[in-house]
Structures are given as structure tokens and as C-alpha cells.
């Protein structure tokens, strides 16, 4: 049973700010002369989306979408909050907090494709390829992380830690997370 207690810092606030600006600049460059529709996936991606769109130098439209989470007994994923904007013929950028298994993104991409956008790309704050079940295309990614459980900057553990300005591990009594972070040259105790 995991404890609701923080472990080590993985990415500091300044590292996050710097990298988000870089990705924002990259998107601004790629979409020069266009007006993309940024779709933020609630609730985790909201913090990242706000900082990302602030760093854009191109015009854009912003919309939000929320999907139901898997719970035992629930049969199908549902769109809890759909878009207000039309997607047809738009250049869509889906913004996620983390892409791990690829299950949610795969579903989202299928939903978008049926709405005939001009293009669809994905921008994620964190990419965790080690946990991937299904291959999904990721076009913009701020950080790649190993197979560890992290919180902060929108990512929560049972509702906690979303408002952290940095990315931290959850306390891991096995010491595995600490060991992995050491190999990355990271892991300042918080």
C-alpha cells in the first residue's frame, strides 16, 4: 500500500518553467501562420496548459475536454465534458499531463479523427514510455520519465499534490524510485 507522502524532487519549478517555454516556442514555430485549437484534457493538464499557452506567440483557440476515469464496474469511457469548439478542418493540439499506457490518448485520437480535423498532434508534459501498452504518436513532450509514480503540476495521488509547483515522487519505502532517480542524477529529498 503506497503512502500519501512525498518522496524526492524530480523536476524543479525552474526546470519546468524553462522546458515549457521551449516547447511553447517549438509549437509557435511549427504553427506559424496558423491558429491551432488547443484541447486541454481535464483535470491533470490544466496547470501545464495554462503555462504552455502563455508561452505561445501565435494566435490559438482553447477548449477543454474531460473523460471519465476507469473504475471497476464502469463499462465504457465517457466524455464527461465535450468541446465547445468545432474540430472539423482545425489543426488540433491535444494537451495531456502524462502519457503512460496510451489507452486514454488512443481513445481521444479516435474520437478526434471522427470529427474530421485538418490535423491532430499530441503535446504532453510527461511521457512515460516504459509503461506504454499501446503505441501512440507523441509530437511534443516536455520530459520523459522512467517508470516511477510522480505527482505535482496537475498530477495527483487520490486528489492530493496537484498544486505542487514541481514534480516529485511519492514516498517509496522500497527505495526503488530513489535508485532510479540517482541514475538520472536527480532526487533531492523534499
Amino acid at each position: 500500500m503506497i503512502e500519501s507522502k512525498l518522496g524526492e524532487c524530480v523536476f524543479t519549478q525552474s526546470e519546468i518553467e524553462e522546458r515549457v517555454k521551449e516547447v511553447g516556442a517549438e509549437i509557435s514555430q511549427d504553427y506559424m501562420g496558423k491558429r491551432p485549437l488547443i484541447i486541454s484534457i481535464l483535470r491533470g493538464a490544466i496547470f501545464f496548459t495554462v503555462d504552455l499557452v502563455r508561452s505561445l506567440t501565435i494566435p490559438f483557440d482553447l477548449d477543454f475536454m474531460a473523460l471519465s476515469n476507469y473504475k471497476t464496474g464502469f463499462k465504457k469511457v465517457e466524455i464527461e465534458k465535450d468541446l465547445n469548439e468545432e474540430v472539423a478542418d482545425r489543426d488540433v493540439i491535444i494537451v495531456e499531463d502524462i502519457i503512460d499506457t496510451g489507452l486514454t490518448l488512443n481513445y481521444l485520437t479516435r474520437v478526434m479523427e471522427k470529427r474530421f480535423p485538418s490535423s491532430v498532434v499530441t503535446c504532453t508534459f510527461l511521457d512515460c514510455p516504459d509503461r506504454r501498452f499501446i503505441e501512440v504518436p507523441i509530437h511534443y513532450s516536455c520530459f520523459e520519465i522512467p517508470d516511477i509514480y510522480v505527482v505535482g503540476y496537475g498530477l495527483d495521488f487520490r486528489g492530493d499534490f496537484r498544486n505542487l509547483m514541481e514534480i516529485c515522487t511519492l514516498y517509496d519505502p522500497s527505495g526503488r524510485s530513489t535508485q532510479i532517480l540517482k541514475q538520472m542524477g536527480k532526487g533531492e529529498p523534499r
Partner: peptide, 8 residues
């Protein structure tokens, strides 16, 4: 069940 949930 998880695969069903995500319509896979």
C-alpha cells in the same frame, strides 16, 4: 475490463 472501458 480496462480494455473494454477504453473500447479496445
Amino acid at each position: 475490463r480496462i480494455l473494454d472501458f477504453y473500447r479496445i
